[in-house]
Design a protein around this nucleic acid. Structure first.
Lengths: 244, 244
DNA sequence: GAGTGGTCTAGACCACGGT
DNA sequence: CCGTGGTCTAGACCACTCG
């Protein structure tokens, strides 16, 4: 019996607890990598039983917002190059084995949101955005041509050295430098023909078919934060997904 | 304390219960659509508490093997055109709205498993397969060219009338006629150029880029049952996936 | 051994779908 | 009204990590 507002739509206790915990993570009160109080402490704080807190925590773990480790404790999820790639990067070789990309930044510019991007990011038309163009190599091959758009307001000092080879994932940078955690993403896939520029950068024939992935990245509160378009060679790589 | 074999790897009670229930579904002892015993009955059958059974049932529901309905009971999941499409068919319009395909069968033949297909279906090279070729229309447009391979041994009398417009999903047919339930699938996506035949059937230009989806469909025990290659127009449709 | 999350139990009560 | 699944509690014990 946490809250009992008149006329309230019914919501189970564990869902209310969960919402409170999400808020603590979203607001930065609990930061990525931080150890949060154990189940009994949370239970006594909210005056509920440990089992109820547990149910909220299990739900948060399923959403990958926290990381529970038996014997150690519960931590706020943190992006690492590893986990970020494993979670958000779906390309595999024809042998079905995961590949690790590295990236070369072609350019970083400021631009304004087009109609499509403004709608995707839920911002005003003309909002100022960072626009990063890069090529990602996989197994020594140039494989992905990528444009990334993020609102300048969210990450004022975002600065990627053009030409530098990047090991770190963008999502690690967002989180560690700007406190922005990408927790969910929507992807739309289609097939397109390579433009002349893309063909040159990817060492393929002009007009060759490319897999185009359009992604909207969202933070823990599901607000859109990043828009990205990736054009991938699929002569030696595939996009992998499981339906369960 | 269900089983306690010497040297056994530790496995929680609810996982053992779950395995038993999966087996009852896989073996056909409980058939799709059937009402299964309630939580207390199962609990007393296995001599565990209701909460333990519940945990197994919740896991099965997450895997979409059963359908739990408050106030009514728990049913073995059944494919319907609706649920099958909603679960396995990922194409959406550019407006992000779901589309419902209909299909025209071009041909049905018998063939033998190539190396690639034999490996995918985990059968011997040369195993006899049904091979169905069809075109799927979406919003009055020919949109997908598709080849489906299933072992003849699994579905001896599979017979689709060429030319007939199909409303029913293949997966509904597999389940209702042959007791084969597709419960999981792996998909690999890439971009390819349309062959002349495909271009003609899809009313697009020769060599136009198509999204190629290679799917391995698996039954409830995760054994591969169907191999399918779909080539999709993505000028007005997209493949949609969420990363959560 | 102390502390954490994971499992399991037993029982109470609630919300929902039918009769 | 009954029977179902859904929530919540309180407490016991198990498995893992670390000092």
């Amino acid at each position: 019996m946490l809250i009992e507002p008149m006329e309230a739509a019914y919501s189970p206790l564990y869902a209310q607890i969960k919402a409170i915990l999400v808020d603590r993570i979203a607001s930065g009160q609990w930061k990525p990598g931080e150890l949060i109080p154990n189940e009994f402490l949370l239970a006594s704080e909210f005056n509920v039983s440990q089992g109820t807190v547990r149910k909220a925590l299990i739900a948060l773990e399923a959403e990958k917002l926290i990381d529970r480790q038996q014997g150690r404790g519960t931590y706020v999820a943190r992006h690492t190059s590893e986990t970020s790639l494993f979670h958000f990067f779906r390309m595999v070789g024809l042998d079905d084995r995961r590949v690790t990309p590295s990236s070369r930044v072609i350019s970083q510019k400021l631009c304004v949101a087009s109609k499509e991007i403004a709608q995707a990011l839920d911002v005003e038309l003309g909002t100022r955005l960072h626009c990063i163009t890069r090529v990602r190599d996989m197994r020594e091959l140039p494989a992905i041509f990528e444009r990334i758009y993020v609102p300048q307001a969210l990450m004022p000092s975002l600065e990627i050295r053009p030409g530098a080879t990047m090991v770190d994932e963008m999502y690690v940078i967002y989180q560690e430098h700007f406190g922005v955690t990408i927790a969910h993403a929507s992807e739309r896939l289609g097939a397109v023909s390579a433009t002349r520029e893309q063909a040159r950068l990817l060492s393929i024939e002009d007009g060759a078919p490319l897999l185009e992935i359009t992604r909207i990245g969202r933070n823990v509160t599901k607000k859109p934060v990043e828009f990205r378009v990736s054009r991938c060679r699929t002569d030696v790589f595939r996009y992998a997904t499981e339906i369960t």
